[in-house]
Amino acid sequence: MTTNVKEVFSDLDAGIFENKIGVALSEVAQGVLKHRQKGSVTIEINLEAMNEMQVMLSHKLKFSKPTSRGKSSEEDTTHTPMYVGRGGKLSLQLEDQGQLFGKDGKVVNLSSAVN
């Protein structure tokens, strides 16, 4: 099983990152057409281990748009913790939370429920 890229991008920064990409693409496209110069949009994602089941994704959006006197650029970095499931699949929620209640109805040891 692999990571669902559309789902992950919609989860980054609670969906705000996806909106920022849309705004950046639109602004750069407008500047490129208006000033007939190249523009760029760059997405950078870094992952760092948090614990045995999670990684922290640092997602950076950089863009540069042409203006009448040169160019304008912005850079924005945010972070989103994600779970790593089977095969390295990234998701906002645990893929399998295991058995949370025993046959007697009591809560089982949560650390063993996740494994």
Rank of each mutant, 00 (worst) to 15 (best):
L90R: 01
Q37S: 11
S73F: 09
K71R: 10
D76G: 05
M53P: 05
V41D: 07
I16F: 14
E74R: 12
K60P: 00
L90I: 04
L25P: 03
P81D: 04
K89R: 12
Y83V: 13
E44T: 13
I43G: 01
S26V: 15
L61V: 05
L33V: 10
T80Q: 05
G22R: 07
E18Q: 13
L47K: 08
V23L: 15
I43H: 02
T80R: 00
V32L: 01
K20A: 15
N51V: 08
G39D: 02
G15T: 08
S40A: 15
L57W: 00
T42H: 06
E27G: 13
Q54V: 08
S68K: 07
V28P: 02
M56L: 12
R86E: 14
G70P: 03
V23K: 12
G88N: 03
S40G: 14
I16E: 15
K65T: 12
E75A: 09
L47Y: 08
L92G: 09
V23H: 12
L57F: 01
E18Y: 14
L57A: 13
E48T: 10
R86C: 10
G39R: 03
I16H: 12
A14F: 15
G87S: 07
E18F: 14
Q54S: 10
A29Y: 07
A49G: 11
Y83R: 04
S64F: 00
T77E: 09
S91N: 08
K62R: 11
K89M: 13
E48D: 06
L12R: 00
E48H: 02
E52A: 15
G88M: 05
H35C: 10
F63N: 09
F17P: 06
K34L: 13
G22L: 10
K62F: 12
E52H: 13
T78F: 02
G87L: 05
Q54M: 15
K89I: 07
Q30G: 14
M82S: 00
S58V: 00
I43T: 05
E74V: 11
R36P: 03
K38S: 14
Q30P: 03
D13G: 07
Q37G: 08
S68M: 04
P66T: 01
G87V: 05
L47W: 01
E27R: 13
K60F: 00
I21G: 03
V55E: 03
M50G: 09
T42K: 13
A24D: 08
H35Y: 14
G70W: 00
E74L: 11
